[in-house]
Simulated assay, not measured.
Amino acid sequence: MTGTENGSAQEPKFLIFGKSGWIGGLVGELLNQQGAQFEYGTARLEDRAGVLADIERVKPTHVLNAAGVTGRPNVDWCEDHKIETIRANVIGCLNLADICLQKGLHMTYYGTGCIFHYDDGKFVQGNGVGFKESDTPNFTGSYYSHTKAIVENLLKEFPNVLTLRVRMPIVADMTYPRNFITKIIKYDKVIDIPNSMTVLPELLPLSIEMARRKLTGIMNFTNPGAISHNEILALYKEYVDEEFTWSNFTVEEQAKVIVAPRSNNLLDTDRISGEFPELLGIKESLIKYVFEPAAANKEEVKKAVREMRGR
């Protein structure tokens, strides 16, 4: 797919879709730090002619798709904007995958792992059995997750596509609104359920390496293991603010303040750990990439978080 120039392998060039999105922006920063060649696409993915023009302009060897809608301020938005969600998350994504296939290009798609939910059978909360890449999604409680499950199933037929199942993504900035820690730290009450999560400072660089390796199929894109909301908040209390407090409420109580149900699950990480044996478990990764840096600047972090919480 990369071709050759003057008898030597062509240097990879990345085309990123999703410039205005969180992950798309972070991926661009990483590629810039690596000194890699990359550009952002300008077309909306449902605009096939525009996507083709972007590819002709950039002439990439690899395409990274971080575009799509999750909703603002959260996925509840998708419940009342179903057509927009379909266009972005299904039609647009398939359009790009199809064009890449026709052009002989590898595509990495930043999808979601929020298409599974603990059940009363094999995948009981706390039993340590995680959903594998081959398992069929069992959660359609939100329209966002419904469209993501549909497109993942269809993308399996494309031999040039790697689908990464991102879950509850986390970065070090505890005031960034998309950060999972920011979301739960703002609330007086949270549910307390163990989940697989994606520590982006550790995992996003691996996604670029996966693209370079031209891995395909589905990849559970999370750190090994699961961690609960209470465990994360306890780490914040330990490393940053010993006076921090919170309380819990049940899933039933949570349902009264949200529109669509939320997914809770454990994803199996055998495949990603096989590719990257150095990958840290979720708690270890959080400590290294999030809480130790926060502790080194705790007064500033504490002040910012308290202002965000209005306290």
Rank of each mutant, 00 (worst) to 15 (best):
T2R: 10
T2Y: 05
A9L: 15
A9G: 11
Q10K: 15
F17D: 00
G24P: 01
G24L: 02
G25K: 06
G25W: 03
G28M: 02
E29R: 13
L30D: 12
G41H: 01
L45G: 00
L45Q: 00
A49N: 13
G50R: 01
T61P: 05
N65G: 01
G71A: 12
N74H: 12
V75E: 08
D76N: 11
D80A: 14
D80T: 15
K82W: 13
I83H: 10
I86T: 15
L94Q: 04
L96N: 02
D98R: 14
I99E: 11
C100S: 07
C100P: 02
K103E: 11
G104R: 04
M107D: 04
T108S: 06
G111E: 04
G111D: 07
G111Q: 06
G113D: 03
D120E: 14
D120Q: 09
G130K: 05
K132Y: 10
E133K: 06
T136N: 09
P137D: 12
N138G: 04
N138T: 03
F139R: 08
T140H: 03
G141M: 09
G141V: 08
H146K: 10
A149R: 05
V151S: 02
E152R: 11
L154S: 11
L155A: 03
P159H: 03
L164N: 04
L164S: 03
R165V: 11
R167K: 15
I170A: 02
M174N: 13
F180M: 15
K183D: 13
I184W: 06
Y187M: 12
V190E: 01
V190Q: 03
I191K: 07
D192T: 10
I193A: 06
N195W: 05
S196T: 14
T198E: 07
L200Q: 05
L200E: 04
L200R: 03
P201F: 00
P201K: 01
L203I: 07
L203Y: 01
M210W: 01
A211G: 02
R212M: 12
T216P: 03
M219W: 00
N223K: 08
G225Y: 04
A226D: 02
I232F: 13
L233V: 09
K237Q: 15
V240K: 08
V240L: 13
W246L: 05
S247H: 09
S247T: 13
E252H: 10
Q254R: 14
Q254M: 15
K256A: 12
A260H: 14
N265G: 08
D270M: 04
S273H: 07
F276T: 01
P277I: 01
L279E: 03
L280H: 06
L280E: 13
E284I: 03
E284A: 07
S285V: 00
Y289A: 00
V290W: 00
E300A: 10
K303E: 11
A304Q: 15
